[in-house]
Every structure is written in structure tokens, then in C-alpha cells.
Design a protein around this nucleic acid. Structure first.
Length: 553
RNA sequence: UGGGGGAUAGCCAAGCGGUAAGGCAACGGACUUUGACUCCGUUAUGCGAAGGUUCGAUCCCUUCUCCCCCAGCCA
């Protein structure tokens, strides 16, 4: 289902034309993350686009770490990024680092200086900002703009050799301080930073800026189509300028697509990192995080993520995709392939008064009704069971098909039971209910004497295994105003984003292992938590609930 | 405000001068040992607005409105 797909969008059209017209011999794309954080679902879209398009045209895709800012980058992230890309199902052709090219970049910058197209500026960061002009006013030329080539060459070399402090000087492109495109007002190409680089250590103390480095990286790698998000659109003239003026033999082209936004989800790495750093979540892989590792820990599958981003398509219109669409794709993926099981998240004890004490019956249960080949399993049934608290109401609302005094329901894979009595504690809370069962209604017996409106799930009281269930809601929730990025992140957090419940799973889940996924019947899809699951402490993360047409929950 | 992009249903999105695909959501209904799944049906005389060109406009032209991005020595 996933493979039978023939996408067409403006980028694929461009690539197709380039190949047909002979302008491009081999399609080469790249996924260029900066190793300054973990990948999120937005990156999944970019990964999908870059890898799939190259694959469709028989091309190649590189994984390239855009590590030009040592202050923010870390080897931890490069490892995590590789894991995430592979987990999503993609294998790169080449793996590179921008830092692999630092020497060549330096030489290209020297070329620029020699051509009179770059100069060393002694102005401070503040001065540069102040003289950049505004949206409506042109900027001012730097007093160092016409520094002689020879002097620039010497200064730039001294920059490289650590003769200046951080921020003392920068290398700037000599473009146009009056350009209506702010990116072209003599953009900074190199800055001084005496920082330890995760890859090159202290070899360098000057680092190229993205705008200079990225086009060179693409050109060096023979990238044909450099596919990035829309906010880089204004950089395109600069991108082309760098490739041209640096006299790169290979000319890559940049094309931009709209980035993914999801409702109730923050996607900025800055904010995600803040959540992690301030301990507001359980790390980058907290199941509430929109990171790939968070989704993985939550129980999402690569297939679901891929089919989700595939359906989004490639466009330039900005918008916000409903999180429900992602939920649809994970349900769609899991439903046919995951075993059913019964779990009671909020237990209520039920005594079946006419069922013989001490007797245990093994009941047949289909592993997955959607796929007979998955077989059946045996689950124990006895006099005492647990059902879901919400499946009993003393005073039921209209259209309530579950248990209430006098009503009969089907216990899934077992018998019909009828509620006869309610036991309450001193505060009037229901603590236990008494039911009777009808032996003739045994599951699989073909009994058709009477129909019952509701079927509820349960676990056997004597063999049930205690389990912890973690239910999730959006990490951030609130009105549009409350969710404004200008509001402090902490106050935008949804206090109910995590709910921990202690209940039971059936004995058939005795041998579950981390990452095992189930559909807990009538509840939703769950995964054994990879971090906290132990054989003696069963922890399940809710991936997504089941859809429900029953109004209240 | 200068520049760059965008506007098709509640959300995403096809459409490329010939009379508005599809998915999600929602709402009905069928089926059901999951109020699930599946299946059927409903939901834009309308494409941000107003003019114009044309036999014919979501598509071309003009003007206007609204939204997003750019003033890091971040990427």
C-alpha cells in the first residue's frame, strides 16, 4: 500500500525536467541537519522528501552534518541523528560533515578576497547590526569595506591563526548594503570562535556561516537539488552568488518547500532543548516530545510516520496540520498487525456470585480479529474479575450500553453477566459489584438466545498482572493566545500531558518485552516502554486511543 | 514599511482556460463478541475580495485584503 504511489509536486516536476533536459546527470540530494539537537517530525518530512525523490530518480542522498557552529553542537546529537534516520528506514549513500570541508572553504574565501569580493571587517557585532539598515532604509558601508586585498589576505590569515579574540573581526561578502534583500547586505561569511569543535577540536578558531558554507557543501558533494524549507528562500541569490563567485565546478540548485507545522506541537529545536534542559520532560525521547526518538518511545512506527508525511505532499503554502491526521496513520498501521489484549486501566472488582469458587476456565481469544493467521490464545477466567470503572454506572445516562444494575453485558471472550448488586464503602463510593453469569452464553458456543448491547473487557482477578499505564495529551495546550511563542514555555505546558494509571493486564502479557505493541481492546494502542519496562514492573505507553463514537469519556 | 512567499471546505491538498479529485475531521446509516475496524452516504453553484479579458476563468490581467518569512558574528 505504501509503495504504490506516484507522487507529483512542483519539486518532482523540476527534477523530472532537469533529468529529461539533460541538465542533471545524476540526482543527488542531501539531508543536512545541524547536530545541535534531536530530529523531530518536521525533519521526517525533509528526510522523506530528500531520500524519496532521489530514490525515485535513481539518485543518491547524503547525510551531511552542518556542523559550522561548535558552540551549539555535540557528538551526542550526531549519533542520535544517525539512529533516527536509519530507524525511519533510510540509508544514506555518503555521510559527511561540513567540517570535512573547512580547509576548502577557507581557500574559497581567500579566492573571494583576491577577487575583491570579501573583506575583513573590524566592526563589532553591534556596529554591524546598527549599520545594516532597516526594512525600509539601506545600510551603511563599513569603514573597512575598501580595505586593500593584500591587507584582507593578511588579516584573514591572522584570524585563522588565532591572533584575534572572538568577535574582534569577521569576514564579510562585498555585495550591496542597499539591497532590499537584507541577506545581501554584506553578509558575514566567517566569524571567530575559540571553541572546541566536536569534530575538528581546536584546529580552527574561525568558522564559516551557514550562508557561505551550505552552498559550498552542496557544490563539493555534487548535490543536484538542494531541497530546504521556505525560510531559506531569500538566501537563494546569496547561495547562487557563493557558488558562482567561488568558482565551484559543480552548480547545485536550491529549491524550497513549506515546513511542517502540527497542531498543539512545538517544533523549534530551541524550545525542545529548553524542555529537556529544564527537566520539564524526561529527555529528548520523552513520549510526549515530537522528536523521532520520542515518537519511537511512544510507540509510533516508521511506516506510520512515512505514510503521514507522504500524505502531506510537498507545497509552499504555510499551514498547520491536524495532529489527528498523524493519529489516523498510526492506527491504520497498527490495527492489522498488532495483537489484541485486555488491560484494565482503572480497575473495579466484580464478583460473579454464581460462578464456582476456585474454578478456572481457559477461554479462547483471537489474537487479532483482522488477521486469522495470528491465531488464538487462552486466557483464564474465574469468579473474580476486574473491569473498567467507566464500564459501570449506578445511574446510567441514556444510550449507556455497559453495566448498570439489572443490565446484562457480554464479557469479551467469556460470558454474559448481569449486574445484581453494588457494594459501596463508607463514603458511598462503589468498591465492588456483584454479578451473575449465564453458563449458556459462553464465548464461541454459538449462543444466540438473546442479544446484548454492550461488550466490555476484563481481566481475571487471580492471575492479573499489575501494570502501569501512561496516558498522554499534547505537551502544550491552550488558547491561541496562551500558546503564543512569546509566552513563557513553562506556562504553556499542559498539566495533564501525562497521566499515570495503575491497573492490570492479563496473564497473556506475562512475557512482554520493551517495544512490544498491543491494542488494548476498547482502549487504544500501547507500547511497552523501552526505558522503564521491567519484567516485574510493566509499563505501557499509550500510543493513541481508539476512535470512539461514544460521546463522553 | 522594503524584499520574498502564500491564500481552494473545520484541517491538509489536487487542479496548469473547458465547467471544483482525494485524505483527515464532522455528521448520518449498515455490520459488529472492541461504541474499534470495515462498508455506504452527506458536507465548496464555490476557489481571499472587487473589477477586467474570454464563448467560457480557481487558472490570464488590474487593484485591494489578510497571513507567513527576512534587520544572528544561528541554521
Amino acid at each position: 500500500m505504501e509503495e504504490a504511489f506516484n507522487a507529483s509536486d512542483f519539486i518532482r516536476e523540476i527534477v523530472r525536467d532537469d533529468v529529461k533536459g539533460g541538465r542533471v546527470r545524476q540526482v543527488v540530494t542531501r539531508f543536512p541537519p545541524e547536530p545541535n539537537g534531536y530530529l523531530h517530525i518536521g525533519h521526517a518530512k525533509s528526510i522523506f522528501i530528500n531520500f524519496e525523490i532521489a530514490r525515485e530518480f535513481g539518485g543518491k542522498t547524503n547525510l551531511r552534518f552542518d556542523d559550522t557552529n561548535p558552540l551549539k553542537e555535540d557528538a551526542e546529537y550526531v549519533k542520535a541523528i544517525q539512529e533516527d534516520v536509519q530507524w525511519l528506514g533510510y540509508q544514506w549513500d555518503g555521510m559527511f560533515f561540513a567540517s570535512d570541508y573547512f580547509e576548502e572553504m577557507y581557500q574559497r574565501a581567500v579566492l573571494l578576497i583576491q577577487k575583491g569580493l570579501a573583506y575583513v571587517d573590524d566592526q563589532s557585532a553591534d556596529e554591524i547590526r546598527e549599520t545594516r539598515g532597516t526594512l525600509t532604509e539601506p545600510g551603511l558601508n563599513s569603514p573597512f569595506r575598501s580595505r586593500p586585498v593584500e591587507e584582507n589576505l593578511v588579516l584573514f590569515e591572522q584570524m585563522r591563526h588565532g591572533q584575534f579574540a572572538d568577535g574582534a573581526k569577521v569576514l564579510r561578502a562585498k555585495m550591496d548594503m542597499a539591497s532590499p534583500n537584507l541577506n545581501l547586505r554584506d553578509p558575514v561569511l566567517y566569524r571567530i570562535s575559540h571553541a572546541l569543535h566536536h569534530n575538528t577540536g581546536d584546529t580552527w578558531c574561525i568558522y564559516p556561516m551557514y550562508a557561505f558554507a551550505h552552498p559550498l557543501e552542496d557544490a563539493i558533494e555534487g548535490v543536484s537539488h538542494s531541497l530546504c524549507t521556505l525560510e531559506f528562500k531569500d538566501q537563494r541569490p546569496l547561495y547562487d552568488w557563493v557558488v558562482r563567485e567561488c568558482e565551484m565546478p559543480h552548480v547545485p540548485r536550491q529549491y524550497e518547500f513549506g515546513r511542517l507545522n502540527l497542531t498543539d506541537t512545538i517544533m523549534s529545536k530551541r524550545s525542545l532543548k529548553q524542555l529537556v534542559d529544564e527537566g520539564l520532560v524526561d529527555g529528548w525521547d520523552d513520549p510526549r516530545m515530537p522528536t523521532i526518538s520520542g515518537l519511537r518511545r511512544r510507540g509510533f512506527t516508521p511506516e506510520a510516520i512515512r505514510s503521514f508525511v507522504r500524505e502531506l505532499g510537498v507545497t509552499v503554502a504555510g499551514g498547520e496540520v491536524d495532529y489527528k491526521l498523524l493519529e489516523h496513520h498510526i492506527r491504520q498501521d497498527l490495527s492489522p498487525k498488532v495483537p489484541r489484549a485486555m488491560a484494565v486501566l482503572r480497575p473495579l472488582k466484580v464478583i460473579i456470585t454464581n460462578y464456582p469458587e476456585g474454578r478456572v476456565e481457559m477461554m479462547d481469544a483471537e489474537v487479532n480479529p483482522e488477521d486469522e493467521s495470528m491465531g488464538t490464545k487462552q486466557i483464564p477466567f474465574s469468579r473474580e474479575i476486574y473491569i473498567e470503572q467507566e464500564d459501570f454506572m449506578e445511574v446510567p445516562p441514556p444510550k449507556y450500553f455497559r453495566l448498570f444494575p439489572g443490565n446484562e453485558v457480554r464479557l469479551r471472550n467469556a460470558y454474559f453477566i448481569r449486574c445484581e448488586d453494588v457494594v459501596k464503602d463508607e463514603f458511598g463510593r462503589v468498591v465492588e459489584i456483584h454479578c451473575t453469569y449465564d453458563p449458556e452464553t459462553k464465548s464461541g458456543s454459538g449462543f444466540s438466545g438473546r442479544k446484548v448491547k454492550g461488550t466490555i473487557h476484563w481481566v481475571d482477578g487471580h492471575t492479573a498482572i499489575p501494570a502501569e499505564f501512561r496516558l498522554y495529551e499534547a505537551l502544550l495546550k491552550g488558547t491561541e493566545e496562551e500558546l503564543s511563542p512569546s509566552v513563557d514555555l513553562k506556562s504553556r505546558l499542559n498539566p495533564k500531558s501525562l497521566e499515570v494509571l495503575h491497573g492490570f493486564v492479563g496473564k497473556d502479557l506475562e512475557k512482554v518485552a520493551a517495544y512490544d505493541k498491543f491494542q488494548f481492546v476498547r482502549q487504544g494502542y500501547f507500547q511497552a516502554d523501552p526505558k522503564d519496562f521491567r519484567s516485574d514492573r510493566k509499563v505501557f505507553n499509550q500510543i493513541v486511543s481508539l476512535k470512539s463514537s461514544y460521546p463522553m469519556k
